[in-house]
Design a protein around this nucleic acid. Structure first.
Lengths: 235, 235
DNA sequence: TTACGAAATGCATCTGACGTATGGTATGCA
DNA sequence: TGCATACCATACGTCAGATGCATTTCGTAA
């Protein structure tokens, strides 16, 4: 065992591997993909099969993967978001819920973006950039890019290093995506632009710029919902 | 291996054990209970330690139990609806988690307090005042007032009128109270004072004052945790 | 009484082995 | 040729034992 893990005895090895594995799933996999065998994953992550198995058990319990005896391990979901742990979907008024979600996001995400700008790794910066490109690609082909949007904001949360935020953002995001499904709303080109704006600020290690960009992004979208509510009220 | 499990080779042994374990938890345990060691659980369930470990990993991922290295395995929740929907208590480093929780609270609660100051009803104002009195009472009698603290902040969230916030604050609060149980931390008199400060600002419909008071309250407590981490690091 | 350190307890991880389910391939018969 | 069966490689499931590391407990000494 002479890998770079030895240094960081702060965290448990399995937790470390689980983080890496999640990262790997989010980055390289889509639902239905078959993962390498436990043995080769063990080699790949410089650990033993037992550890891989425990990590997989944990991921399976979270609904991320499915383990089929004699066959292999398969990816179920590539978004880290649990269905609805806060029971938000039981809300009466979808529009008002969406507005409230954006109010909460406006409290959290500008600050998170600022933290991300300070703490991001180069690898994470590249990841953000890739999300921008992919989202734009989906937009141009007029395909649904809601999942990519969730991943983008989740990635920023990951950059911040705050684990509470990392748990929170996907939940809020997926609640919003539910709203979008309900209202058939198509995201505008503006989203692509501000995503790039945010990404550039984070890449340039500009916390204030990142905070501003994120605020603008959220404020713009909040206003769109406000507008929709007004229209609905009049009609 | 001559137990009755041999017959039912339809299902996997670990799944069987997990069911039994869940049953055991729901039936005989309450949150905070310490489970027997992995070794003795293995004996009890007529299986090996590896299998027990995989089951526990799975339960931990579901937020049912928490595994503490060197200490033991503890029951987090005994109901299907976990009071820890974000799996925060499974965090490795309690102190860092507490710090991160306060970082999130500092993003949310000052703004929530400001909203509460604008939107509170008279009845809610009275309720806040009553919480202050009751908390002070418990403090003077040197009894635990953590629950009252949770109710206080939850009440402010309710005043804000934002349902997402109302769902979120209790989750964050109870995660912090877990931390307090771990560290035996006693809240200081300062808490009583700033709770009153916050309450008065909300009663006087002073959003800016409420925001300031809440910020000061949280910043003070965050600093206490920072201090504890420093002490621990040196010792 | 307090502080320090050693022993005991218990989780974390590794190794190696064998059981069992699955899926593909080769064989043989029609 | 086409299909059914047998076989085998792959991969997950489980077990046993050993060692490392973290936490807790407790006895001893200052």
């Amino acid at each position: 065992m002479t890998d770079e893990y030895a240094k960081m005895n702060r965290t448990l090895r399995s937790a470390h591997v689980e983080d890496q594995m999640l990262d790997y799933l989010l980055r390289n996999c889509k639902p239905g993909d078959k993962l390498p065998s436990e043995f080769s994953l063990a080699e790949q992550f410089h650990t033993s099969r037992s550890t891989i198995r425990e990590v997989m058990k944990s991921l399976a319990a979270q609904g991320m993967v499915e383990i089929r005896h004699g066959s292999g391990t398969y990816v179920i979901s590539t978004s880290a978001s649990a269905p609805d742990p806060l029971h938000l979907s039981g809300h009466k008024d979808k529009y008002r819920l969406a507005l409230e979600l954006f109010d909460v996001r406006l409290m959290l995400e500008p600050e998170i973006a600022a933290m991300a700008a300070e703490l991001r790794t180069d690898r994470q910066a590249a990841e953000l950039k890739r999300y921008c490109d992919e989202t734009e690609d989906l937009y141009l082909r007029d395909e649904d890019h809601m999942d990519k949007d969730i991943e983008f904001h989740t990635c920023i949360a990951r950059c911040s290093g705050n684990t509470v935020v990392q748990a929170l953002i996907p939940v809020i995001q997926s609640a919003i995506s539910t709203f979008c499904n309900v209202t058939q709303r198509k995201l505008k080109n503006e989203t692509i632009q501000t995503h790039r704006w945010i990404t550039n600020a984070i890449i340039n290690r500009d916390p204030i710029g990142a905070r501003c960009a994120m605020t603008a992004h959220l404020a713009f979208n909040r206003d769109m919902i406000q507008e929709m509510i007004r229209e609905r009220g009049e009609v």
